[in-house]
Nucleic acid binder design. Structure first.
Lengths: 209, 209, 209, 209
DNA sequence: GCGTAACCGAGACGGTACGTCGGGTCTTCCG
DNA sequence: CGGAAGACCCGACGTACCGTCTCGGTTACGC
């Protein structure tokens, strides 16, 4: 957001030449910047390799050389957003799950281009198996961190030992996806604590258990 | 599934003429049949108005006359699948939720063209606001039934009164969507009971509450 | 040459719609006009389907629908030039051959876009067998007329009966091609009579025969 | 035709390193060999600098360093074919012209890669002025030899003194070009003597002169 | 009972974007 | 400095669909 102003519009002065028989990082940056800008301006529709190439002042073959399809490019754009906000592990499972849902999912998507990109990625994955695989792999990595946190909570005795950690994470991630895909991220921000409490306490009447 | 064999392949003999200044039901049927067939053969990708028109031996304007865009057409295709399987209300919340997840969601999608269509619809909704609205409205109607069931469980004392019914339904629907969108419906079939139990009992260690 | 002014530059007002499920002559005219204009402006290099489509305000698929490749399009452009100048048959073989070389070949190419197009066609035929075939067929038709004239001269006794008429025509056409391909049409204009005389009288010293 | 076997297919073992700050003849040979091979395999179409570079295991800049464009490279390829077959000067104009047409032109092109290269050169010259100039110069040199022979025939009294020698040569060369460009070299082989006789005796009925 | 309005199949139209190919330039790294 | 390598920008290729349009023909309805 700070140094891509020159590529935001093709000014004619930013032409990048080859720097020899190796990948030119400036071009890759410019392409990712342009992809981001295109998504920002035109939304998911209107995202095309052609538009990105034009905005980046790059040739289409240069894009196809490094990203096999638009999905891969979008995934890279998304990865650049990967916030490095601290993921606390506070010692409280509830606080951790709230932070997960807030910082890493809904809150990360809220008011952010990231939501647009991720929605597009999921849409793409419905059509393109490669996209689906990439998305799945990416997501498994994200989930693993939270699974570890739940396992720690089990050791602390905070969490029931028979609980399937992955299932818990899935429930939370699923909820976030669902709201994202229905365009209800903002509304869902207010439900974060209620969701976590639901997942933690369950629906049954504890007096009757 | 029973009377569309003749349109499955354009045999040349099925040409439908106009029946006057009114909608020809045969054409509409043929178009929906063709749309279904195209989805069956080519998956979500490969679904194009052009392909449907060709398969249905219909003109493109005939399609556009009755469905404003491909999303509307797909939604109609999906509606034809709307299963009328009994939705029991057995008196047991757990059994009802399992049935919901099984009959209405994952099990309905399992081994079915419905999954393909629904995935496509969700993908479409990411781009097309009209699709998103239609999808949202459709889904709200489906959720309402289950919300009522939970409310009944509250009255029975089976479910805690402070529970947000919609949230519970959302958790279950979200889980199903998530698995659908990742192409993991089959695998998810085996987790149905675990999911319902998770939602019902929560993750916390009940001995420490 | 008379009614294509509006298409010469895309003015925005000339958009041609479909006129139903059949070829739109206006589009074909506009495309040929545009092709001619592109050749006029950019020469043979710079002639691209893309440029023609842009200039004609036509979609590329519309061009490809009717002309399988750029060669076919160029050939059609050339055909439009086919001058309908009278081809005399004056009763004098020499005068007729001079007129052929002058009106139909070198003179036709002189100071004309036709030369550019024909050179490009010949060049294209070296690469593309379809172009070669089309060119050959076109040329055979043109030659046939002159062969008939020579045959008449034979009947008049003006031409030796053992002469191979086609060979005579070939010599003259070949000479014209050669000069065209070397870009020497203008210079060759001055040699027309000498060439015809050479072909008619031969090189041998008649006193020694 | 004898030492280029190793470059015919890039075997991986033939990489030529630099030999210091001067032109590496092996590379030049390899490039010409590769160009020839590419022409042989893919014909005129399919001849690209890229293909030659790949086949020769050379970098594109190495080619561009020594040949300004593809035309120059093709011209060099053609020059390597310059046959040194004896050009007789038998003392008979007819025999000499037949030999010229046979040995140097049609017969040289017959069943030969030379035809392919020469056709490509002519095609290139239609687009590229430099190619046209080079081709013209090359051809003038070839013609000069035959012009001398005709001049000798004039001195012998065999040829009419008022005849334009260059024109005679042009007629013959033109005929050969024409047949070459239409891909009719083989068929034209059988017309060689008839052509020469036509040029020598002319078409007019000698009894009426 | 006859004109007309709306439907139907068909397919051309102007477009946008796709993913690929090759052109000619440039730069690095190695010898 | 020569040469291999290959990335770079660019422009054109030929294809697939989009959504619109007009056609010629076919009923059924309303005047």
């Amino acid at each position: 957001m700070d140094l891509k102003d020159s590529q935001a519009e093709p000014t004619g002065a930013v032409t990048r030449k080859s720097i020899g028989a190796r990948r030119n990082p400036a071009s890759q940056e410019a392409i990712l910047d342009a992809a981001e800008a295109v998504l920002n301006e035109g939304g998911v529709a209107g995202f095309s390799i052609e538009a990105v190439a034009k905005k980046a002042r790059a040739g289409k073959p240069t894009i196809y050389r490094w990203w096999p399809n638009r999905t891969a490019l979008m995934l890279d754009v998304y990865r650049r957003f990967k916030n490095e906000r601290p993921f606390p592990d506070t010692g409280s499972l509830r606080a951790d799950l709230v932070a997960f849902l807030d910082n890493q999912l809904l809150g990360f998507w809220h008011n952010s281009l990231a939501a647009t990109v991720y929605r597009a990625l999921i849409a793409e994955a419905q059509t393109d198996q490669a996209a689906a695989d990439a998305l799945y792999a990416y997501q498994e990595g994200r989930k693993a961190v939270v699974i570890q946190i739940i396992e720690k909570a089990k050791l602390r005795g905070e969490c029931a030992p028979e609980v399937n950690s992955e299932l818990i994470v899935d429930l939370i991630v699923s909820y976030a996806w669902h709201q994202l895909l229905l365009g209800r991220v903002e509304a869902a921000m207010g439900t974060i604590e209620a969701v976590v409490d639901s997942v933690l306490h369950g629906a049954l009447n504890s007096t009757t258990r």
